[in-house]
Design a protein around this nucleic acid. Structure first.
Lengths: 255, 255
DNA sequence: CGCGAATTTGAGCCGAATCAAGCGTTGTGG
DNA sequence: CCACAACGCTTGATTCGGCTCAAATTCGCG
């Protein structure tokens, strides 16, 4: 550490938002050149974490917001009885920690499902910057609003939909989100376990497994371990009950 | 209308936040005197609406945020098949419309369950005011964060808890919220129908009715039509599984 | 190759949905 | 003020979807 400063440099890199491939989805979205430069002064890129690593833990004092750059994150809570509830899965461009603003501590844990890189924003600085950059408050409120919409969608799905419908909702939603990120919406690898998906969708792993089989039998999807191929998106959407409610075809997945 | 201007005056009253009894719970909470005065310039009090009246409708273009002053509001969505999903119930001091910020249109409808009065804030003006009043950003983000936490709680309840547990969650949550507003937390009238509560909690009205009976038999509550008396809050909380997760003893009810 | 973890499969059961009355309350009009 | 209609709520009987428990299989990893 004393030999040279490279360790420190690696651990906290100043971020260049202007050249970031996510800039059109991320915080810079509603900002102009000079503002992005200002934003960069409070954004730092932390070293990537490996699978099972945590960005923050439930109960920790809230200090910072985080933005996923690459990878995938599972958000979950553990209650007093040790029961886990998966709240959602976060993808690149998405903001983590909004639900902590109201309470002052992180209400959930954020765990990497793959090697995940992300940016760090100290919240107090972020709040200050909101004063000088109008687009920033616009963006974070939009993100918060979208999270709420997604929560309403999952609330409805668990509340009213059958098992197969919920699974269809999950896949159509995931497909849409991947497409927005520039990936294939019809073929992808699931970064999360069956257990986590089932938990998120309010069902047992066994039940999820049976539903997967059913969707394969009905020729809606192909499944090969973690690899999913959507064969009939239209009928999958119909099964999911493509909600008018949600404009972007239900972004259920980020809970 | 031409005879005098009283009609107009009644329809949009400039609001005095400083004298409002809700100021300690509402937007002025984190503001100082001069700022509240500034806030007042964009807040107007609309005439109260009666039971079944709507503050806004799903699909309408998003223009404004609203704050409940008195009464109670049901938030709900109707999907393409005509199925209703009750998203939550809003009480005085709570902000309506946050989930519309991300999409530009109201994603749900807000219906008065009783005569309800509320304040109106044009969102564009609100955004502008955020630039000059730091506390405003703080407050709305807190509100958004709390809504998210509440959504996570209801997600978990519907996902994992039994019928009786969910009903217990509902009553303990409602009790807590009423207490915060200065009402009795142990005895109150339900402004919403059994149908709406059941829908919100992801169950059938028949099932809710049977669960009510069970809680009465177990001496946890008394029920007389809309009137509820909580007889054993401790055990009701235990049944609800008082989540460590949520600091204010689960504010599930505003979904 | 072998072990442990994750996933699938199977059998049986139970909780909650559904269907169908019946009852009580509220609101309306005579 | 009462009668009747309409609605909301409760109760009962039956059915069924999904859970539970148990075991087999496959996968991932050392």
């Amino acid at each position: 550490m004393t030999k040279n400063s490279s360790n420190f440099k690696i651990s906290v890199l100043q971020t260049n938002c202007r050249n970031c491939s996510l800039s059109s989805l991320c915080l810079p979205k509603d900002l102009v050149g000079a503002e992005i430069k200002e934003l960069e002064t409070i954004v730092s890129q932390l070293p990537p974490i490996n699978k099972h690593g945590h960005i923050f833990n439930q109960g920790d004092k809230f200090t910072s917001l985080y933005v996923i750059r690459s990878g995938c994150v599972k958000k979950y809570q553990i209650d007093a009885d040790g029961n886990e509830q998966v709240i959602g899965f976060s993808m690149p461009g998405e903001l983590l920690g909004i639900d902590a603003i109201g309470t002052g501590k992180y209400m959930s844990s954020a765990e990497a499902l793959d090697t995940t890189s992300f940016c760090h924003l100290q919240y107090s600085k972020f709040e200050d910057l909101c004063q000088s950059i109008p687009g920033l408050i616009k963006h974070i409120l939009k993100m918060a609003g979208q999270e709420l919409v997604a929560e309403h969608d999952i609330h409805k799905a668990i509340s009213q939909k059958s098992i197969d419908e919920r699974v269809a909702v999950f896949f159509t939603s995931l497909s849409t989100r991947l497409k927005i990120l520039g990936y294939s919406g019809s073929e992808f690898n699931l970064p999360m376990s069956r257990h986590d998906i089932a938990n998120f969708l309010g069902m047992q792993p066994e039940t999820f497994s049976r539903s997967l089989k059913k969707l394969v039998t009905d020729d809606l999807i192909d499944v090969n371990l973690k690899h999913i191929k959507i064969k009939d998106l239209d009928n999958l959407r119909t099964l999911a009950g493509h909600c008018d409610t949600c404009p972007s075809s239900s972004k259920v997945m980020n809970g």
